[in-house]
């Protein structure tokens, strides 16, 4: 996995939720739960190998489910144009 968050996005965690402002497209995105945790991991340059265990621990799911969720969500982020790179 080699994806990076677009440099022209601004984001911030508030009250447990991750807010993402895409000024170029005048859009506001809101993430919570596992999605917010995955985004936070990507913002810190973490790999799939680091993000998946964090999901397992935080949300008490098995590793296989967590991996599938991480890959699925990152795929959505790529489709939405919020991250760039290859899964």
């Amino acid at each position: 996995m080699s994806v990076k968050i677009r440099k022209d996005l601004a984001f911030r965690r508030v009250a447990g939720e991750m807010f993402i402002v895409d000024s170029a497209k005048a859009r506001l995105h809101e993430l919570n739960g596992p999605a917010a945790l995955i985004w936070e991991g990507l913002s810190k340059g973490r790999s799939e190998a680091t993000i998946v265990p964090a999901i397992v621990e935080e949300f008490e799911v098995d590793a296989k489910t967590a991996l599938a969720d991480v890959r699925s969500f990152i795929s959505e982020l790529v489709t939405a144009g919020l991250v760039e790179g290859e899964i």
Binding site: A10, F11, V21
Partner: peptide, 11 residues
């Protein structure tokens, strides 16, 4: 503004 720095300040 449409730049990320301003958006970060706004947030």
């Amino acid at each position: 503004s449409k730049d990320a720095k301003t958006a970060a300040l706004v947030m």
